[in-house]
Amino acid sequence: MHQVRAIARHSGQDTMEIKGFEIVKQGAEARLFKGTYLGRPALIKERFVKKYRHPDLDTLLTKDRTKGEARAIVRAKAAGVKTPALFLVDFDRRRIYMEYINDAITLKDYIDSNISDKENVGCLISFIAEQVGSAVARLHSRNIIHGDLTTSNMLLKNYPVSQRERTGEKDEKNNFEGEIILIDFGLAHVESTAEDKAVDLYVLERALLSAHSEVPSLFPEMLQFYQKFCTSKDKRDVIAKYKEVQARGRKRLMIG
């Protein structure tokens, strides 16, 4: 009886609409809705039911992933990396309610429109490299692995759009520090091994390579800043491992 009810609830639960919210994105695991919650601009990430899974397993996986994501967002914040504030974590409706970041663009769009195929953009590249390198370094210094470091998962706010702005007076407004915001911690986990950090860097390198192949200096510069800002003891190991991973790919060799 209990099980029948569970299954019935399971199959009829797919939300396509949330009152007062509009759908902004649909991924493989969740839908994103934008609206207002508790008087603030908000984003809802709802992990939808996967019908091919056993309902119990589906509930469990969703709950664990929701937990993991929320936990990582808060940990990253404590590590000094800007992330959205959490308004509600709701296991019953499979949702995370979080702050909607206004006036921001993805790093991908920023690079595409301000750096790719442009001249004299060395300073902007350095700016981006420093922002990303130091953010990833701060995460890794606290053993947080993002798991999906791509330029689409980084938002940029108060960004410089030209060379002049970047080199201009560094007053309060022109201080760009901390203006990169990391999002989508859906694949994040806490792991202290050099291998995991190296793979995280490698994922970033591959993402840059495929999305921004016209800016080849981006990743090497990021890596420089990463090394500069990373405070964890295993920094050398991570770099050594990274070279190893780069040579063999993300997957480990399994012999025996």
Partner: peptide, 16 residues
């Protein structure tokens, strides 16, 4: 506090 307001830190921690 360099990357978010005190109230945002507080509510995020409360929620987890």
């Amino acid at each position: 506090l360099k990357v978010s307001s005190l109230v945002d830190c507080v509510v995020s921690k409360m929620n987890t």
